[in-house]
């Protein structure tokens, strides 16, 4: 018997089939968790977001419109849930540190970064964290999740041109962020 595709799984989930949810989880939980982790840069929060996303999938599978891919729909839910979590964190941060001028950036080390790359990875994720929301989303989906630009445009409901422009600005922001964090590292490594 052929494996059901994601759309069929989603239909089954809409009918309350818990096994279908398990199968879909097996297929896409890595993407959901990895995307959430790139946003919140904290494993416990990424787990919480993954739980939220699958709860939303369970509840609203029936409202999925077959116009887009299931993964596009799931990415959209993940991005929105992650951005909401970041907003909540910012609000909490406002109360705890009213005097702080800059966004508090988590000291995040990607769990899979090898030892010699840990500092570069930490600097990159810290620069990603400081990007404005839309640039962050375009960058995370394009470079961390490695989605095709067209799918990124669909997830974000924007044109391809807009995505390219967001990515250009994101890269500029990241360059500035990395240079500020590590002013001498480029020279040291190049030589």
């Amino acid at each position: 018997m052929p494996e059901p595709n994601n759309r069929e799984l989603l239909q089954d989930i809409a009918n309350g089939n818990a096994l279908a949810l398990r199968t879909l989880y097996g297929r896409i939980s890595g993407r959901v968790y990895n995307t959430a982790l790139s946003y919140v840069q904290n494993e416990a929060d990424a787990e919480e977001i993954t739980q939220d996303v699958f709860t939303k999938i369970w509840r609203s599978a029936g409202s999925f419109k077959a116009e887009s891919q299931v993964t596009t729909w799931v990415y959209r839910i993940t991005v929105n849930t992650s951005l909401t979590a970041l907003k909540k964190r910012e609000r909490r941060g406002l109360f705890s540190a009213l005097s702080a001028q800059e966004k508090e950036v988590p000291d995040f080390h990607h769990p899979n970064a090898v030892m010699e790359d840990r500092e570069t990875s930490r600097a990159l994720f810290s620069a990603i964290y400081r990007l404005p929301d839309r640039q962050k989303t375009a960058f995370v989906l394009s470079y961390v999740e490695e989605l095709p630009r067209q799918q990124v445009a669909e997830v974000m409901n924007l044109s391809l041109k807009a995505i390219e422009s967001l990515l250009m600005r994101a890269k500029k922001g990241l360059r500035n962020g990395l240079t500020t964090d590590y002013p001498n590292r480029g020279n040291a490594t190049a030589k």
Binding site: T120, S121, A123, L124, K171, L174, R175, N176, L178, T179, Y182, P183, N184, R185, G186, N187, T189, A190
Partner: peptide
């Protein structure tokens, strides 16, 4: 390349 360019491409 400038430091920033190198850093980003490296990263």
């Amino acid at each position: 390349k400038t430091d920033g360019q190198f850093e980003l491409e490296d990263a």
